[in-house]
Design a protein around this nucleic acid. Sequence first.
DNA 1: AATATATCGTTGGAAATGAAATGAGTCAAA
DNA 2: TTTGACTCATTTCATTTCCAACGATATATT
Lengths: 146, 146
Amino acid sequence: MSQSANFELDAFLPYQLAILSSRVSAEFAEIYGRRFGLSLAEWRVVAHLSAADKVSTREVFARVDLDKAKISRAAQRLEANGLIEKRQSAVDRRLVEMSLTQKGRDMMAEIAPIARRFEADFLARFADGDGRAFQRLVMEALEASK
Amino acid sequence: MSQSANFELDAFLPYQLAILSSRVSAEFAEIYGRRFGLSLAEWRVVAHLSAADKVSTREVFARVDLDKAKISRAAQRLEANGLIEKRQSAVDRRLVEMSLTQKGRDMMAEIAPIARRFEADFLARFADGDGRAFQRLVMEALEASK
DNA sequence: AATATATCGTTGGAAATGAAATGAGTCAAA
DNA sequence: TTTGACTCATTTCATTTCCAACGATATATT
């Protein structure tokens, strides 16, 4: 009998990782969704903008793991809601430079501590120093899979 | 100036986790997609069935982190392709019992070692014993977030 | 038994998604 | 300086997804 067909999905790391990630994301999305009406794509865009302003769609695209169409649509909604500004780059007129408005910065100033707290709470679920170890290993895996 | 608005998305664990998970899933999906024409949902269903046969949609739903509609549609395609069988449960006629056909078992017998190899290769990217440590911590996190 | 309530899997339809097409702009080579 | 090959952001369109409704069945209450 082919015993190798007997496969334990639960013990399969890619699956475990997917479950963990989707749970954590869903938990956090619940917060910024309920509180600020943001979608995941919108959250990522404003979060990225808060660190590096004057950013083109293309740069966001390169850094944030969303496809161009999603970013473009997220940016449209963010602009409509007054959270970001978009303007054509003077240097290269194909590029759209996005930046947070004051309203956008205010919102990020509210979300940032909530996000940090969320992360801290998550890490606190681990025993002892395991939280930090976990984060270190996640970063190691990210480096290795680039 | 509100410095707390300055948020480093790259260093935010939920984001890191999402990136890592989607990269790993995409890599593996490439394999079962190209080689067996399976979607993610289909892969999960057959993988789950390989360990526990005679399973209702509802049980798959409970264990596999997919919504009912997706499972139902995945099962339809799998049945159409002769990989699973569906029959009404004699005990409770609302339930649909799914199980792998011989063809389905054969396919899983092919995929299983590929999956195990994929996982091993991924773990080997880590330094030293870090791979096992990582998997242990992922499981710890899953337990803690139930 | 009759009725009400809950659960099962599937389906319909609105919304989201992603791949490719589009149109505007840049740049290099002849 | 014209041509052609690229690149950028948006839009289009076919597909997928998700939620809620549905019909069928089961269970609890009267």
